[in-house]
Amino acid sequence: MEWVRFVAAVICLLFAAVMEAIAVYGVYKFGFVMNRMHAAAIGDTLALLLGALGLIILKGFSWFSLKMALVVVLLWLTSSISSHVIMRMEHSIDEESIDLDTIKM
């Protein structure tokens, strides 16, 4: 039972690392702001959730895991809100952002 938990935790953490790597790659690959934001959001949401989940599984259910869950909830709230605000700013400032031709890889 112990090693099943360990393997599950390691799989979660590895997936989190892979997702974070994809997010970083995307942020540097894309040129347009909204594409980059989409790539960065992968790291902010899925990688964060998987990393916290892996740590919770590794440590077992306790106050520690509750605090980790709280961290995930707060970061999901704040990071998504901040990217929403940046996007609205970009949309209202950039005159070309509505033009679909500018959205390129």
Binding site: L77, I81, R88, M89, S92
Partner: peptide, 17 residues
């Protein structure tokens, strides 16, 4: 001046946060 004013999403979240 350029910023979107009274964004309902950020206001709801700020109410809680």
């Amino acid at each position: 001046y350029m910023e979107p004013k009274n964004d309902i999403i950020i206001q709801k979240v700020a109410n809680f946060l």
